[in-house]
């Protein structure tokens, strides 16, 4: 796996250029993203910080192909995601993106194992779902339904589901937002362990600073714009960032 070596190699996994996204009509128009540009390196664990309404989730959705910008583009490996058709976007999400949602978003009628199996990449490992469940320490809960799992357990299943497809990109939208602090902390530890060991490119959106300690890079958004980009403790002014 790439891990920090990839970062050191400075390969760009995903980049966003001049993303603009606004909601509402003329009088009630809200600009969620205001000309945001961002490069994400392979193997990088990026934390996007910002208060509520800063546009961080919107940015994440753009990166994940869940939403389309009003203008600007997202590139994955040089290929523009923004102009893709619905089918291509869906394939993009299926093949390249693993999503971890704040509210877990497990399918209630499926067991933990079945949830993971939904989009698992079984080409290299037919039992990947089992393995992922084992990785997150929930083997004994394989036949439990989400209603029978705690919040932390559900989030771990969600993480396992996201990683089971072996995505290039793991996007986490406030993964601990629905958890208590202790559980959230444990989730973060586990998440970090997994992604570091796998060398995944991870983008985590949060509004809490506690998550930033595990990040390789921290981007701070305010009012739809990047106000701070900090890597390895050094702040990279936005205007100095070379694209």
């Amino acid at each position: 796996m790439g891990g920090r070596a990839a970062i050191r190699e400075n390969r760009i996994a995903l980049s966003a250029r001049n993303l603009v996204k606004a909601y509402g009509s003329d009088q009630n128009r809200t600009v969620a993203l205001n000309d945001v540009s961002l490069d994400i390196r392979t193997g990088e664990l990026l934390v996007i910080l910002g208060s509520s309404g800063s546009g961080k989730s919107t940015l994440l959705n753009m990166l994940g192909g869940m939403d389309q910008p009003d203008s600007g583009s997202v590139y994955l490996g040089g290929v523009a995601v923004s102009g893709m058709s619905d089918r291509e976007l869906t394939r993009y999400r299926r093949d390249h993106v693993g999503f971890v949602f704040q509210n877990f978003n497990l399918i209630a009628e499926l067991t933990a194992l079945e949830n993971i199996s939904l989009t698992a990449d079984t080409r290299n490992d037919p039992d990947i779902a089992e393995h992922m469940l084992e990785l997150v320490g929930l083997s004994e809960k394989r036949n439990n339904y989400p209603a029978q799992l705690s919040g932390g357990q559900q989030q771990r299943v969600s993480i396992a589901r996201a990683l089971a497809k072996n995505p290039a990109l793991l996007l986490c939208d406030e993964p601990t937002g629905a958890l208590d602090s202790e559980t959230g902390r444990q989730i973060l530890i586990q998440l970090e362990d997994l992604v570091r060991s796998w060398g995944k490119t991870v983008v985590i959106v949060t509004h809490t600073k506690e998550m930033s300690r595990m990040a390789d890079r921290i981007v701070v958004l305010r009012n739809g714009s990047i106000i701070r980009d900090e890597m390895n403790g050094q702040v990279i002014p936005a205007r100095e960032i070379e694209w």
């Binding site: 089918r87 869906t90 999400r93 299926r94 999503f99 949602f101 978003n105 939904l118 989009t119």
Partner: peptide
């Protein structure tokens, strides 16, 4: 929507 989000086609 979850299924769509995780990559199920229409």
């Amino acid at each position: 929507s979850i299924l769509r989000a995780i990559g199920f086609q229409r």
